[in-house]
Amino acid sequence: MDFIDLRLQYLASRELINARIQAVLDHGQYIMGPEVAELEGRLAAFSGARHCITVSSGTEALVIALMALGVKPGDEVITTPFSFIATAEAIVLLGATPVFVDVQPDTCNLDHHLLEQRITPRTRAIIPVSLYGQPADMDEINAIAERHGLAVIEDAAQSFGASYRGRKSCNLSTIGCTSFFPSKPLGCYGDGGALFTNDDALAAAMREIRVHGQSRRYVHTRIGVGGRMDTLQCAIVLAKLERFEWEIEQRQRAAACYDDLLGTLGEALAPVGCRPDRTSVYAQYTLRVRPPQRERMQEVLHAAGIPTAVHYPVPIDRQPAYAHWAAPGGCPVAARLAQEVLSLPMGPYLDRASAHRVVQALGQGLAQLQVQSGEKAA
Results as ranks from 00 to 15, higher is better:
M1H: 09
Y10W: 09
A12H: 10
A12N: 11
S13W: 01
A19Y: 12
A19F: 13
R20Y: 13
A23D: 11
H27I: 02
G33A: 04
A44H: 02
A44G: 05
S47I: 03
C52H: 03
C52N: 03
T54C: 15
S56N: 10
S57Q: 09
G58A: 14
L62V: 09
A65Q: 05
L66N: 09
K72N: 06
D75N: 04
D75A: 02
T79S: 11
P81G: 02
A88H: 08
G95E: 07
V99Q: 01
V99L: 04
F100G: 01
D102Y: 04
P105F: 09
E116L: 11
R118V: 11
R118T: 15
I119H: 03
R124Q: 12
A125L: 12
L131T: 04
Q134P: 02
I141H: 10
A143Y: 06
I144E: 03
E146N: 03
V152C: 04
V152N: 02
E154M: 01
A157V: 08
S163C: 04
G166I: 07
S173A: 12
G176N: 02
S179E: 08
P185L: 11
G192D: 13
T197H: 00
D200K: 07
L202D: 06
A204P: 08
A205M: 11
M206C: 12
E208H: 12
Q214V: 03
R217I: 14
R217H: 14
Y218F: 14
H220I: 11
T221V: 14
T221L: 08
I223T: 15
G224K: 07
L238A: 03
A239S: 08
K240C: 03
E242S: 12
E245T: 15
E247R: 15
R253H: 11
D260M: 07
L261A: 10
G263A: 13
G273M: 13
C274W: 11
R275L: 13
R275T: 07
R278K: 14
T279C: 04
T279R: 06
S280K: 10
L287I: 10
M297T: 05
V300D: 06
A303D: 14
A304I: 08
I306H: 01
T308C: 05
V310P: 00
V310L: 00
I316Y: 07
I316E: 05
R318T: 04
A323N: 01
W325E: 11
W325R: 01
G329H: 12
G330K: 03
V333A: 10
E340Y: 06
V341P: 00
S343R: 00
G347A: 13
S354M: 14
H356L: 14
A361D: 06
V371Y: 13
S373K: 14
S373D: 13
G374Q: 13
